[in-house]
Design a protein around this nucleic acid. Structure first.
Lengths: 182, 182
DNA sequence: TAGGCCATGTAACCGGTTACATGATTAG
DNA sequence: CTAATCATGTAACCGGTTACATGGCCTA
């Protein structure tokens, strides 16, 4: 799931610019399972063009900087299919929150409470984002992915809200910590 | 959620070696939300020791290479708490499978079917792992994290199994693809 | 008039992985 | 006899991020 393949996949759904690929992958409909910055996207697009996987036309609209609108080529599509056809590598999931939860019994309760709340807010935001993406999705695949995301994130949020008190109970309160320090 | 903090967090739950930290974070109870390799862990432990955050004793058992058993120090614990106390950064989730699902309508059906099955197997394995970790968990925090993981992964798997046919229906079958090529 | 959006790009940096070296021991 | 497990470590590499440059336009 390198940036090169990501660019090809996004371009296979329609022409765009590097600027918009970045938007799609940090705020748009790819953002909840992908991430990419300018410093990775622009070089990738240049390489793809060099390899004949994409072409671009320069559109200069007055008042705004000219933009390079990229299109995927037959060769690019071939490479994309090839890349997506071999078994997908495992999903990558990294969670600082769960590391904190894991250390609950060694943490001051207030710190844990803050972490839980932050995580709750983050999850809510993500769920809202996916919901709004789902509402405006034209593509069947996109809708399925949004539904999947809603199920996962929504379930995650619900479970967190339902069991957070149990987790909180594991943490140390001030007096226990003082006891332990002796 | 850098390797340094990860090492401190694991050591705060009890003494271990670099070798075992790696095991814990790739096969053990941290593995589903964390990942680290020797090349990252050993240098991190050396730096932590230099900074007075950990100490180690060398245990040489006959027939096996001697091992460095690390313990966290008061200073190390202080740094850990500090690191875990400020708001957790967003969880990172990257999924090649969802990128494939997103491109469903442009993919041959067989390829999508393979991807779905692979993902199903991966999820099942993960759920099984977490289940077994949960069964042998002594620590309250660990149990909570396992339950949380079971809810997320289990929900994810259930949703995938319940809706995979819909996704599959989005993909192109051979004849459609030939049509599109004209 | 300050800041944000559009839009492209690059160079320095960095946190990690991969692949290797070493070597005794045990399991198949 | 081979392969895996234990156990530590390093060097080369790499894919990516961060921070910056550029510059006109629009909004608060």
């Amino acid at each position: 799931m390198n940036i090169r393949t990501l660019c090809l996949a996004i371009l296979s759904a329609g022409d765009t610019t590097g600027y918009d690929i970045r938007k799609l992958s940090t705020e748009g409909k790819y953002s909840y399972f992908v991430d990419a910055s300018y410093g990775a996207i622009y070089p990738a697009l240049n390489r793809l063009e060099n390899d004949g996987c994409v072409t671009f036309r320069e559109e200069s609209q007055p008042g705004k900087p000219p933009r390079k609108v990229y299109s995927i080529t037959r060769e690019g599509h071939r490479e994309l299919i090839e890349a997506l056809c071999d078994a997908p590598s495992k999903d990558i999931f990294k969670s600082e929150f769960l590391l904190i939860a894991m250390s609950a019994s060694r943490l001051p309760r207030e710190a844990l409470a803050r972490a839980i709340e932050t995580r709750e807010v983050q999850l809510k935001e993500e769920v809202d984002l996916i919901q709004s993406l789902r509402d405006s999705a034209k593509d069947e695949g996109t809708r399925w992915v949004c539904d999947y995301g809603m199920a996962c994130m929504g379930g995650s949020l619900a479970h967190l809200q339902a069991t957070k008190d149990e987790l909180l109970a594991v943490a140390q309160n001030e007096t226990e910590r003082l006891d332990a320090a002796e």
